[in-house]
Amino acid sequence: MDISIIIFLLGGLFLGWSLGANDAANVFGTAVGTRMVRFKTAAIVCSIFIILGAIISGAGTTETLGKLGSINALPGAFAACVAAGISVYLMTKAGLPVSTTQAIVGAIVGWNLYTGSATNIKVLITILGTWVLCPVISGLIAMGFFTLTKNFILKRKLHILRLDAYTRTALLLAGAFGAYSLGANNIANVMGVFVPISPFTDISISSFFVFSSKEQLFLLGGLAIAVGVFTYSKKVMFTVGNDLLKMSPVAAFIVVISHSIVLFLFASQGISNFLQSINLPSIPLVPVSSSQAVVGAVIGIGLLKGGKEVQWSVAGRITIGWFTLPIIAALISMILLFILSNIFNLTVSF
């Protein structure tokens, strides 16, 4: 493989690392923040299930992202990924839980603008629409689950220690589901732009099993995410777990499961097909922001408790971050594309 291809792929891997450091913290942040699950356990489970989710169910959202703007040259994809990675890193440094989803969408639009390619407005509106829907749906799911769980606990009169044991198990299972959904929903952010220009070839292990070039890309992306989880997500996990709302471990579980369901809904081809088959509007397979899902769920629970405990100033800062991140990513993307094409004389689009 050409060395330049490896260098360009590093852009995606950098973004994968960012996703692992930032978005993956959303999955286990509340569990680790409330000290119900050890960081090491969380990191291992998270990494394994993110990789599985990416390889098994990552195709749907990748397709949607491809429609937004099909980056057709490796240097262009590199610039988009690095731009998204840098912007996520900057936001993470500022302590704001943002998502690679918003960053990569901004970066792709930046590529479209720089290269003069058309942005598919319909797809863009769908994506932006889901960004509004995602926290709302997550909040509503959290409210429903919270009410049900609270009633169940009060009715069953579980001993505080038994409840603790159940909650730990539930947190771990929900976290595994969340990691799988995150991998399925967000791998598109990391490797989606490389799919049309994948440097890999399909590998036939036996006549029954073919490890496609796309799956190899997703595995690579998944590994990069795992590295991000292990190296940088601990701090973000504690921020997510404690800053926005002081949560009980049970509430932490509600947040994780609500976030996981939302991510799964927006990544599941099966659910989308099923809804279509019974003449209901199908759910668009769009990479949504895991941060938005978590923040939506946390605020949902906060509202159910009367809204007084929610740190609205923190919520406001986070929301501002959501608006600025895609713009920053688009700008950085354009700057990088300019540097690559004018200083390094690389072709950033065909």
């Binding site: 119900m36 699950v37 050890r38 356990t41 001993h159 220690l161 038994r162 603790d164 044991a165 730990r168 198990t169 771990l172």
Partner: peptide, 21 residues
Amino acid sequence: MFGLKSSSLFSDTKKLEREID
């Protein structure tokens, strides 16, 4: 897995419940 060293989470929990009771 959760930080327990030897015995399982649930058996330890039950033992502790009995002790507190």
